[in-house]
Amino acid sequence: MRIARFAARRLLQAVPVLLGVIVVTFVLVRVLPGDPIRTILGPNATEADAAAARARYGLDQPLWRQFLDYVGGLFSGDLGTSIQSGASVASEMAVRVGPTMELVVLAVVIATLLATVLGIWSARRAGRAGDHTLRVLALVGNSLPEFWLGLVLILLAYSVLGWVPAPSGRVDPDTDLTLITGADLLDAALTGNGPAFASAAGHLVLPVLTMVVVIVAPLLRSVRASALEVLGSEAYQAAAAHGLSERTLLRGYLTRAALVRLPALAALVFGFAIGSTVLVEYVFSWQGFGQWALRGLLYRDYPVVQASVVVIALCYTLIFLIADVVHAVLDPRVRI
């Protein structure tokens, strides 16, 4: 119960930040150089055509008016109309969020689990060859440009070895997957569509692997450092000196204490992964949120840019909130 109240309070604290985000995004988008109307109308349009188009998208209104419309729309769930495609931004976004979240969540979850297991393993062997090798490998992974790693993996696993499907699309269209959430693996599981599940998994392997390799190092470093700190702490030494069994020590005295600092970092890594998807989706033609937002940015599609940036910030803020709550659950010293 106290946790729920804590979460509610943190949510309230996030409100001013989100308001700030909305204002910053609005201003940022207006001062972007380039004219969206010119880019869709082409060079031959007359001034009258342009004025008419501006009126259609509300761009002839004074700025404060545009801002109010925009904020009002946000609260009623109307994110405007894409200048490029003419379709509703909300409906376009709906089909884009699922695939990207699937990618990011899978990558972050796998990386966190991997980091926990390997970090504790590494700390218990601190200073030995295995520990050093693992740390250097993690650093190499962390130093790889994800867009290049993706390309190299495609080169090896597709072009040379032919182990994975071609890097375009997320699922074989022949499998007739019914769309529910947009996250193909999840949809396939929900509809019990075996072939689609296999196909979606096959398409996910390389992009998820790319992201895991790139993001695991900081998580691993943190778990290892915390675990080492716990192992060297008086508290752990005292428990060991009282003859508690390895199992009790690992479960009761090492793991939880070593994971206390992980949630905040995992949230940060989650944000990094969201940034990475823009690049990874581009490489794997994923047709997800990142690619959609990037196109909006390149074509100065105001409504799309605004909506995508606000949604990313909202998502990121929520993730930090979740991390805070998890931290509070893990660490009794956090006052809630």
């Binding site: 930040v17 989100l18 700030g20 985000v21 910053v24 940022l28 944000g271 990094f272 969201i274 940034g275 990475s276 823009v278 990037l294 940015l297 840019v305 940036v309 990313i312 910030a313 990121y316 803020t317």
Partner: peptide, 13 residues
């Protein structure tokens, strides 16, 4: 507010 955006997204913008 600035850190409410993932760094790379902010860099893009």
């Amino acid at each position: 507010v600035f850190q409410a955006f993932p760094a790379f997204i902010l860099a893009l913008a």
